[in-house]
Design a protein around this nucleic acid. Sequence first.
DNA 1: TTGAAAGCGTTACCAT
DNA 2: ATGGTAACGCTTTCAA
Lengths: 334, 334
Amino acid sequence: MRDVARKAGVSIATVSRVINFPGDVPAKTAEIVNTAMRYLNYRPNINGRRLKMTQTRTVGVLVPTLANPVFATSVQGIEQEANAEGLTVLLTSSSYDPDREMGAVSALLNNRVDGLILTLADADNNPVVDLLLAEKIPFVLLFNQPARSDIAAISVDNAQSAFDITNAMIAKGHRSLAMVAGRFESSDRSRQRYDGFCRALRDAGIKTPHLVQVGFGETDLKAYLRDLLCGLDAVTGLVCSTDMLAIAAIDACRSYGLSVPDDVSVGGIDGISVGGLITPKLCSAVQPTQEMGRQALAFLRGLIKGQANPQSLLLPHHLSDGESIGSFRRRSST
Amino acid sequence: MRDVARKAGVSIATVSRVINFPGDVPAKTAEIVNTAMRYLNYRPNINGRRLKMTQTRTVGVLVPTLANPVFATSVQGIEQEANAEGLTVLLTSSSYDPDREMGAVSALLNNRVDGLILTLADADNNPVVDLLLAEKIPFVLLFNQPARSDIAAISVDNAQSAFDITNAMIAKGHRSLAMVAGRFESSDRSRQRYDGFCRALRDAGIKTPHLVQVGFGETDLKAYLRDLLCGLDAVTGLVCSTDMLAIAAIDACRSYGLSVPDDVSVGGIDGISVGGLITPKLCSAVQPTQEMGRQALAFLRGLIKGQANPQSLLLPHHLSDGESIGSFRRRSST
DNA sequence: TTGAAAGCGTTACCAT
DNA sequence: ATGGTAACGCTTTCAA
């Protein structure tokens, strides 16, 4: 910058003005400075600016993993919106490990991000949330549904989605259902969806809900599902807490020679998936994931500017009846 | 930091030492300083450090989109590896728009990243590459296969993958094949794969290769494929340049009442996809995408340290014969 | 309309 | 073993 100033025969203050307040400087001076900048291949050093300014125009993002398209597309939405606003995105992932969340957020905070968008393992009783609240750092939770209502969050109603999809399966005649869920320690969504599942069964007078908890990233469910699929009292339908699990479950069914949906019905709760094509498409609860990411960033911007108050936004979901792969017909052998 | 120094009764120089060279300072002093840091909730401001140091320990990443699991998982790999090394990742995406690449990279450069990992629309004759080369900024291309051999790149052999999969389909009896590809302007991989497709057809004495170019993000292929699927000389197989296209193609086939693979065979070239389960799994060319991301970061670290030289790494691929959804049997009506 | 200068939080050199 | 201090590149106030 000093070089540019010298080359243009002005002070660095003027160069700064040309960059930040082009209107404040006469066209002629600006022209000279711009020419000098181009000539010298000048690149403003954002770190100098960040050090000086109170706002860094940077947001931190923490997701469990990008290997799950639900999170990946939501980050894509955040990224797009940030791009449009000229914000920089700092990305980290926890690999679904609650113990790594604090470290990741700490690193983000050391970067002096203006705010954070987080998907946490468990939004309630979480030290990260306490820290952020205590330090008054703007943040919005994505996909989490915290119990407290004074925390910014964008999600669908997890319990309700699971409740609805389970009811839909019951309505089609299923009486023996199991839920395949991610581990509760690493996903409060999983637990909330299980609650919805249980409530639906209870309402229908069905007892002993089966539950299989599966580690994230697990792709081979054969061992987990053997009893449920091949045992004496095998279930006729599986409700899966995520699309990825539903996909894995379908694979397991097939490897046991069961056809989906004729022998077994499988439902997944995210309802998103690659291009909206692949999944069981049973309950399109989280359909516009990318849009949720955008909204989260827009919301966060409001918080940062102090123009908005933290609150929970629950997006509506709807059931899709699975015309595609792994769809949703009643067991034919009943 | 000054506050910590005062609290601990030492100079800021000592505080800095405790943080950066804990060994250089007596345990007793370190203890006092650490206590003061905890007491004051001290957070080192990374921007101060970045401004002072020549290395920022930050890498920039540019991908076309995170909505494609191929890129999302590769970023996940980069992220994991960066995490392990204590590096920060700055993420941007181009939305497959070549015109946005330069702006995105510029922003990254303004952040003074130590190096870059990029997936470009077209690696050959690309102004971004020229810039990076001219400014001697370390970078590695991911998924791109540049013509020049002095550029760091990690990819599979795109043309060869397409060649192999096409040959496999020919070997199963297909004589009328079409390729469904992403737009060449936004993906050199697409063009390279088309080249491989054409070569296979030529070698087999089949002429007039059909080509349908589809915009990225396109999920409804019915209009594109009507002629190929329902016309008088409909093809018996589709070779798709990516898994996402293959998935969309399968959907289109079904909507025309064609069953896959019985009426139409569909092959996708990535061979990865969500959890490795969903895709046609025809040609597992890019199987370990996440691993490719890790490798890219490791490679980049070598370049940054000046310990490695730019070179192309072509990872092997293999054919998988698609036992899962959308598999790969010959048209039964032949 | 422009410039001088202070200061943001670090690191690292040079003294002590 | 520790401290003083310059410098990193920028923004912004205050004067001119």
